[in-house]
Design a protein around this nucleic acid. Structure first.
Lengths: 226, 226
DNA sequence: ATGCCCGCTGTGAGCAGGCTGAGAAGCACT
DNA sequence: AGTGCTTCTCAGCCTGCTCACAGCGGGCAT
């Protein structure tokens, strides 16, 4: 099993290499994002371990570009514990698993094996929940074949919910991810307002309820689109 | 397998030649764009390695002219790591792969082999969206059979949009790709102005809207030409 | 049954994003 | 120098998005 490890801190990289080799992997190293991306695109790896903080091209970008090039090699992202990014962001960008530093090589190896067992699973470029589809690149949303016109904010909200379809997302989460965290907006009502707008547009006038309220917890987008 | 390497820096060119010959390729060198273009047009190569920064005729122009002459030999473009151009530009102009310096000869050789395995893939010489056509080599644009006269800037803008027809392109992207990145132009209004010019020319006076505004995101050229 | 939250929605102000007309500056060609 | 075209800046306008607010209603606990 060949693994590519992309990590700029040389000592850590070497340690990971040794750790994984001890676990029976064949390991190649890259010390910056650009090299990493090229080696990964080159193909031939069964999985890629990707640091987020990289000089030049960040791990996120690497992952994003890999997926954009339709390369579905399993990617495990490493991040510093106190990083500004979180798991959700990494998974959104097409990573398959996530580990915060410091971590144990045993755990890393085990997760890699799990990923590889699953193999390279293509993720469609378009999000789908039942007959509701959202294409991030063209910014088009359809209910069945019927196009749905959304404003920028509504679109961002729906995209976020669809990426987490099936799980409950709290209003605070939505506020911080869809409304640019760090702003001094704290009134959660705005989320309720936009959920209302969205419902009007994606659930027909009758009864459908793709976007469910989970009282006291948040909202959940039905995986079957309502 | 015969490869033409076009690279003005003699030492690097010689090194690449040695590296590829070690990998079993037969290598010819050209040290400037004009010679490179002649040798490549001459034919007989299974692939071409093309530096971007070349005296006289840039690698981009060489590639463009090759394709305009319906020569579909696989082209791999080399660029300096900090170059102002990016992968997308190279691929847009008809290159088949892209590598930033510094690179390893092993990787270069592997990629060339992959390219040759794929062989020469003709790309349509003319871009089309519905009844809107744009021919990059003759610089002609037609709506149906009706020719449309565009200025240089309008043409560049339309070409860029047509290469990404169906996806939303942000104004910032347009600004950096159509208006020569690196300039200190930051006022996005110029994009709006040119979109206006373009619409006047490619959408008739009535209702057509090939070039859609996606508020808060950018513009999208309809794949069916409006 | 009652009261209290929590969530929903109608209203309207403010404003950002996008469009356009006018015109200045630059360039090519005569 | 004159003409015509292209490129770009600027300011004003308009649309409709975004958001705060306040009142309403339904569910839940007591």
């Amino acid at each position: 099993m060949r693994v590519l490890v992309v990590e700029d801190e040389r000592r850590l990289a070497a340690a990971v290499k040794r750790g994984l080799e001890a676990g029976g992997f064949v390991v190649d190293l890259a010390h910056d994002g650009v090299t990493g991306l090229h080696l990964a695109t080159e193909g031939g790896y069964d999985s890629v371990v990707l640091d987020i903080m990289l000089p030049g091209l960040s791990g996120y970008r690497v992952c994003q570009q890999l997926r954009a090039a339709e390369n579905w090699v399993p990617v495990l992202v490493l991040s510093a514990k106190d990083g500004e990014y979180d798991q959700a962001d990494a998974l959104d960008l097409g990573a398959d698993d996530y580990l915060t530093k410091p971590f144990s090589y045993v755990v890393l190896a085990a997760r890699l094996r799990a990923l590889m067992r699953r193999g390279a699973v293509p993720r469609p470029a378009v999000l789908r929940s039942g007959d509701l589809t959202l294409d991030p690149s063209s910014r088009e949303v359809r209910r069945g074949t019927q196009p749905v016109a959304l404003t920028a904010r509504e679109f961002a909200l729906l995209e976020f919910l669809m990426r987490r379809a099936g799980s409950v997302v709290s209003k605070a989460d939505l506020l911080s991810h869809v409304w640019d965290a760090g702003d001094d907006i704290t009134d959660l009502n705005i989320v309720e307002v936009y959920v209302g707008y969205l419902r009007k547009k994606i659930d027909g006038p009758f009864g459908r309820r793709a976007l469910q309220t989970v009282r006291g917890a948040g909202y959940r987008l039905a995986t079957d689109g309502g």
